[in-house]
Design a protein around this nucleic acid. Structure first.
Length: 682
DNA sequence: TGCGTCACG
DNA sequence: GACGTACGTGACGCAC
């Protein structure tokens, strides 16, 4: 039965619904423990758009209540929303509209987030996470979504009321089905944790981040000047190169107003890598690199590759990459951020995906248009997108444009070397654990001792930085290589040594770091057998190898008979069978590397999310909603604004983050360091 | 739309 | 036994 709460005289009871009052609606819900909940709105931006309806459904599907928010104050349902267990699809969206009304639900279950946990690791497009797709998958029910796009022009008519009510019928059943699957997959606790993060994710988007437009404009002006300077320097340099003569031309036609321009012009678009490859070749650079995926040779002017070729034309490298850097800054960190400022809050409200990366990390930003904001600011939708705040350039000037509002202070708090510490504990690597617990915490030096054992014999780890800075910095690329599961091949060009040398260094490292070496072997065995990587043992967060079953079947089909035939008929031929075998093992080594990387990367994500939950609890408990703001979360860092009178906050945040780490790993303390200013310092 | 490049962790 | 060999994202301009 559908009930409608409205004061709109034009809506009459009909066969589809019964009109009731607010007290009656509250009475209907008084014994519900769980509420299936959804909203319809006039748009996607909670700071611009309005709630049209709120829908409540009970677990046995017998009652759906649709509230007409045009004539009924949604706050009448504050109690229901804050006290009961709310089930919804992508609640991050609905919650922000409620926050705007100072309604703050405490206990939520998000069917979309749960689904993303259940299928974490699946490539995009394999599994859909919309309510329509989830309902189809679990309940074999088709939900008709055609009305959604018509709500704004239809207004609240019978069709819209029916549609809205239908969205709160199946959520409970979906949750039940998901819980059964979660039990089988042993991810129940992971879902529980992710659902607890949802209100904080909503809060982070709701709070937004304050960008000082004047500071940003000054930065843009500076960036543009830098780019012009870099471009001019580059072009002028070209005019002096005999081998690049064909790219230099003179505008002989002249200009009606300015007369003849005698200055040489350059016909190179430096933003086109295709064109720059030609230039680099003419200058004598080797532009050949191997494609990561196809393994085929291709041309590239990627910085990493060209910078290894010292002495060929260092001046060109300097000028070109100087241009590149400023070009990137101007195109990616300029007007778009100003456009994204909401004039109502004067803040940027971007989007975060809670399980955006397959490792379980959050991701940020979107090229989708914020139509509501575009309309409000009279911009074209394309100009109003959602910037990625997680990958802002690291320089002080850029970050300083993000400021705390008057009366507030900015606090950024980041985990110190969290991935290195997690790696040490997860791999049970004694050398690194000792360094963190009893040494100076200089892991690069510890790695250097393991890799360059002979050269550093007799030198204490704490003295490596002073006595052999060369070896300490050289080892960093080997560290990354190891962490990402390489054998050294890929690290060689960056270290400026041969593949053989790099491989030897990796081997040295594994010789001297037995824990790491053992983990490499056992994690490979495990992922190939089980078909998932356990990102966090305590919660059960898993990254699934989605087509592992097929891989395993394939693997089992490789019998000794098969290999005998393979050796004599297919090996080295590049035929179909040889290609299949190659693809098969490529997949396996891909997951070997993920098995090494995911527990640190995904584990770190779980820890940061736990800190977010704890911060949310602190905010609610101390009545600091809308006072302490979460403005950004990267992968090892939280940025907050807090009232300057709340002096203890930075210490509180440090303590929350430390305690969040302790819930999972205790051997090495995962300490976080707070930095306070009136702007973002990092 | 795919590719190349580069910003961040 | 044979095979593979650097993780995870998003934004932008170019070329088609």
């Amino acid at each position: 039965m559908v009930y409608l709460v409205t004061k709109n005289q034009k809506l009459f009871d009909n066969n589809s619904y019964v009109i009731i009052t607010v007290p009656l609606a509250l009475d209907l819900m008084k014994d519900w423990n769980t509420v299936q909940f959804d909203t319809e709105t006039t748009g996607i931006d909670c700071h611009i758009d309005k709630l049209l309806t709120m829908q409540f459904g009970n677990y046995d599907k017998s009652v759906q209540i649709v509230v007409d928010c045009n004539t009924i104050n949604p706050k009448a349902f504050k109690g229901v929303l804050e006290d009961k267990f709310i089930i919804g699809q992508n609640l991050k969206f609905d919650l922000q509209f409620l926050y705007k009304l100072n309604i703050v639900p405490k206990k939520v279950y998000d069917t979309m987030i749960a689904e993303q946990v259940l299928y974490l690791g699946y490539p995009k497009g394999i599994i859909g996470y919309s309510l329509k797709e989830i309902a189809k998958r679990y309940l074999d029910i088709d939900i008709d979504k055609t009305i959604r796009g018509q709500i704004n022009w239809r207004g609240l008519d019978t069709k819209v009321i029916e549609y809205a009510a239908n969205d709160v019928v199946y959520l409970y059943d979906i949750m039940q089905s998901q819980m059964i699957l979660a039990k089988q997959k042993e991810v129940t606790k992971a879902i529980e944790l992710e659902c607890k993060v949802v209100p904080m994710m909503a809060y982070m988007e709701f709070c937004g981040i304050h960008l000082d437009p004047a500071k940003w404009k000054a930065k843009m002006q500076q960036d543009k000047e830098n780019l012009d300077k870099a471009l001019n320097a580059l072009n002028e340099w070209v005019t002096k190169q005999p081998c690049l003569k064909k790219y230099v031309y003179y505008n002989k036609q002249g200009n009606l107003f300015e007369g003849f321009d005698a200055k040489p012009k350059i016909s190179i678009n430096w933003a086109s890598s295709l064109q720059v490859v030609k230039i680099a070749k003419l200058l004598g650079f080797n532009t050949t690199v191997q494609d990561k995926k196809t393994k085929e040779d291709k041309d590239s002017v990627i910085e990493k590759h060209l910078k290894t070729q010292k002495g060929i034309n260092d001046e060109f490298l300097k000028l070109y990459f100087d241009f590149q850097e400023h070009f990137k800054t101007v195109t990616s960190f300029g007007q778009g951020h100003l456009n994204a400022i909401n004039p109502i809050t004067e803040r940027i409200h971007t989007v975060y995906r809670q399980l955006g990366a397959k490792s379980g990390r959050m991701s940020c930003g979107s090229n989708n248009s914020n139509n509501s904001l575009a309309k409000l600011k009279s911009l074209s939708p394309k100009e109003c997108t959602y910037p990625n705040i997680q990958q802002l350039p690291h320089d002080a000037q850029t970050r300083a444009c993000f400021t705390a509002e008057k009366g507030n202070l900015w606090c950024s708090c980041d985990y110190a070397a969290i991935e290195a510490k997690l790696g040490a504990m997860i791999y049970n690597e004694k050398v690194l654990i000792d360094e963190f617990l009893h040494g100076s915490g200089d892991t690069h030096a510890a790695y250097a001792k393991a890799v360059f054992a002979k050269e550093l014999e007799g030198i204490d780890t704490k003295d490596v930085k002073k006595k052999r800075p060369d070896l300490r910095s050289k080892v960093k690329s080997i560290e990354f290589a190891i962490q990402f599961g390489s054998d050294g091949t890929a690290a060689a060009p960056q270290m400026g040594c041969s593949i053989e040398e790099a491989k030897e260094l990796v081997n040295n490292l594994l010789q001297n770091m037995k824990g790491l070496a053992a983990y490499k072997i056992s994690s490979s065995k495990e992922v190939r057998k089980k078909g998932y990587v356990l990102a966090m043992p305590q919660t059960g967060h898993k990254v699934f190898w989605y087509d592992h079953k097929e891989w395993l079947e394939e693997h089992q089909s490789y019998t000794s008979d098969f290999w005998e035939d393979y050796k004599s008929n297919h090996k080295g031929t590049g035929d179909y069978i040889a290609q299949e075998v190659s693809r098969h093992f490529k997949k396996a080594s891909e997951w070997d590397r993920l098995a090494l990387n995911i527990p640190t990367q995904g584990g770190g994500a779980v820890i940061l999310k736990t800190a977010m939950i704890m911060l949310w609890e602190y905010i609610l408990k101390n009545n600091l909603f809308n006072k302490v703001l979460l403005v950004n979360a990267t992968h090892d860092e939280l940025n907050c604004e807090f009232p300057e009178t709340l002096k203890e906050f930075p210490k509180v945040l440090e303590s929350i983050m430390l305690e969040a780490g302790k819930k999972y790993y205790t051997l090495i303390p995962l300490n976080a360091e707070a930095e306070v200013s009136d702007h973002w310092v990092h």
